[in-house]
Amino acid sequence: MRTVIKSSTGQLRLNDKSDDFYKLHLKEGIRPDGRMLMEMRPMVLNVGSISTASGSSLVKVGNTTVVCGIKAELTEPNASHPGKGIVVPNVELSPLCSPKFKPGPPCDQAQVVTKFLDNLIQSTNLICLDDLCVENDKLVWILYCDLICIDYDGNIVDASVISLMAALQNVKLPEVKINEECESVEVNLKCTATLKLCSCPVSTTFRVFDRSNIIADPTSMEEELTEGQLTIVTDQQGRIIYMERPGGVTLQEEHVEKCMKRAVIRGAEVQTLYMEVTG
């Protein structure tokens, strides 16, 4: 049974919860856009295109486009960590990228993805924060990592992780010294150094349809039809460094294992892409 409902964006759409359309595709083991269940969309990565940012990248995963720009500025450190730099990620899901989002403060999804990136940076020790310290208790680098979604077609998590990583690899920090005698800060823009990254994570997102079908890299339409999300983050050694499944449906262990294996393969593919692009 199909009903026509008015969504919050004021646009009329079919109530896809009846999902016969999707089930017909899954019976043949294929999805409406022609992909297999565990197949990912093609990815395009470009770094260093924004000259006003210290490091930048643009990622397209299918239609989902995320631009990450990193601004490196100098500030006083937190009182609790006087010798450590600060990294502040922020994901913008503005109404520009999709009719699903309203103007105003960040929606729940944007907040969750921002916190996910923050957890990822901290738990995996992605950047050695001691390296970002210029002078203990006086001056540290702060990296504002702003991820702007230009086009939202599902799977913002994977696209954000990839663009953040690529942009961080692209960052060039100028040399900064504190002149003891005149207590001023001297910046040498010509002498730049890249960031030392301790790991290179890649995330893979899966969603569950009808409790038994697992699809990888969901599009926006598939996100609305499915329940339960599983995100697995792997590093260059194939270990799992982060996994989150906020609930929704129970999953059999063999399904989770299958997802973990697929995530490791995908991790390796994306690592080669990083290598090619950043050189």
Binding site: S123, T124, D235, I240, M243, T250, L251, Q252
Partner: peptide, 12 residues
């Protein structure tokens, strides 16, 4: 059965 998971940190 497993309903929800949160895991952080490198593990095999």
């Amino acid at each position: 059965e497993l309903v929800s998971t949160y895991a952080s940190g490198p593990m095999t």
